[in-house]
């Protein structure tokens, strides 16, 4: 019984997602990749990086890079307000902060609530999607963290050449 309880505790994270807004669109990230949510703070700009990489922040003595999800999705920049915040994520032991318009809630999504994204999409944002889910008549776009950053790397590689 004891063991069972522990494994449930771990499984808990796997079906759960943090949803956030970019404009009126709801996106979500798997909870397992998320470390914390912090308020907007002063970002030190780094020269020579793509425009959506806003710079670095000091997260309790740790230097963490910050990307703007809006810009990454090819949407226009928007002034930050008091709802704008940074979701600190971890992928491959690398911490990256993501600037989003606002954070909504943590939801539990079932596999059968999700649909695969269309294969023939042309806009770049779609290539980061893992699946599309519907919950209470709302559409949630689930972002695949690995794709989100891998595409980033691949894109850079092309730039370098």
């Amino acid at each position: 019984m004891e063991d069972r309880k522990y494994s449930d505790g771990l499984d808990d994270l796997s079906g759960r997602y943090l949803t956030f807004y970019i404009d009126e669109v709801i996106y979500s990230l798997p909870l397992g990749h998320i470390i914390e949510i912090i308020n907007m703070q002063h970002i030190t700009h780094i020269p020579g990086v793509p425009h959506y990489v806003k710079g670095i922040v000091n997260l309790r003595g740790k230097v963490v890079p910050v990307s703007d999800v809006r810009l990454k999705f090819g949407q226009p920049e928007r002034p930050h307000d008091d709802k704008t915040c940074i979701i600190v994520t971890t992928i491959n032991d690398m911490q990256v902060g993501l600037i989003v318009d606002s954070v909504a809630e943590v939801v539990t999504l079932d596999k059968n609530q999700m649909a695969a994204p269309p294969k023939a999409g042309k806009r770049m944002g779609e290539s980061y999607l893992d699946s599309i889910a519907t919950l209470n008549d709302k559409v949630i776009l689930n972002i695949d963290c690995t794709k989100f950053f891998q595409a980033d790397m691949a894109e850079l590689f092309v730039h370098e050449n």
Binding site: T44, P47, G48, I56, N58, P65
Partner: peptide
């Protein structure tokens, strides 16, 4: 710099690293 920036060759741009200043900002 965080490994995230490895691809951008910041050293080549003339930056060797960063540092956290007394007021918490980064130089």
């Amino acid at each position: 710099f965080p490994t995230f920036f490895n691809k951008y060759n910041l050293k080549g741009h003339g930056l060797s690293g960063c540092s956290i200043l007394g007021d918490g900002s980064i130089s």
